[in-house]
Computed example of a mutant assay.
Amino acid sequence: MSLVELIGQADERGLAASGLACLDRCIPLLGGDDEVLRPLWAGLADDAGAAEWGERLEQVRGKLGGEFGAADGGVGESDAGGSGDFSGSGSGSGSGEDEAVLLARRMLAGAPVERSAAAVRVWADACSVAALRIHRLLDPLKDAGDSVDARREGRTEGMSPLVAAELRRQITVLELLAGHGPAGLRPALEVSTEGRRVLRAVVSRRSRRRG
């Protein structure tokens, strides 16, 4: 089953975990530590956590600094009927890493304060696209595909290693939540932690080369 199909079939918890996992793997771009999203992960374990999602989200935004809102390209009410793709790169100026940081900021900006199925579906889909684009921008090897949309639909020929690994992790997280419900959260977090370490190493190598 393709990533697009898995997102289409996921429930509210699976969608929230999918979007959160994408953001978690990209936290190194925002200067966050490895624990900054743990309160949001913990809130996915039971239904009561949905009521506290918005408050915990604002705490995370405060720790990461900056202003997060519609001006950053977040998902607003007008996006509810569309794809919610907030991953456009704007002018396209600046380095690949600059663009990757902007995409990561938009992932956090776009997180819905209300954890409803409709809102998190838009967010999870947009985070999926943004995370794949981030990994494509930072991969030292060129991805031969025309777009990440093709990758999400199952056309995987000529994928670069970093993009292939991110696609695999996104699929795995959704499969874990679909197959195991709340019990899938811990292994999903482990998958995301592995990906975060990989991206942190990539960002560190790029920084050393610039130095």
Rank of each mutant, 00 (worst) to 15 (best):
A144Q: 14
L174H: 02
G96S: 01
R56L: 15
S160Y: 00
R196N: 02
A119Y: 02
L29F: 08
W53T: 09
L102K: 14
Q9S: 14
R13L: 10
L29K: 03
L64A: 03
D47A: 15
A21Q: 03
T172I: 05
E153S: 02
V101P: 00
V36T: 14
E5H: 12
G184T: 08
R196K: 03
E114S: 13
D149W: 12
T193L: 12
G94E: 11
A70P: 12
M107C: 02
L6I: 04
G145P: 01
R133Y: 07
R13H: 03
A48Y: 04
A80S: 15
V101L: 11
C127F: 06
R38Q: 14
A201E: 15
P28A: 05
R106L: 06
Q9T: 13
A21G: 10
R208E: 14
G211D: 08
A109V: 10
R25V: 14
S116P: 09
E77N: 13
A118N: 14
L138N: 06
E67N: 03
L30W: 06
Q170S: 11
G88R: 10
T156F: 04
I27V: 15
I134R: 05
D85G: 07
E166K: 08
S204I: 00
L189N: 05
E97G: 10
A51C: 09
D125Q: 15
R200I: 00
C127T: 07
D149E: 11
R152H: 04
L20S: 02
S204W: 12
D11C: 12
S95Y: 01
R152N: 03
A118G: 13
A144Y: 00
P161F: 08
L44P: 05
S2V: 03
G14T: 11
G211V: 10
K63L: 11
L174D: 02
V113G: 13
E77G: 10
R25Q: 14
F68V: 10
A70T: 11
S18A: 15
R209M: 04
A178L: 12
L189D: 07
D11M: 12
S18W: 08
V203R: 04
S95H: 05
R61V: 01
W41L: 04
V202T: 02
R151D: 09
G62C: 10
D24L: 04
T172S: 11
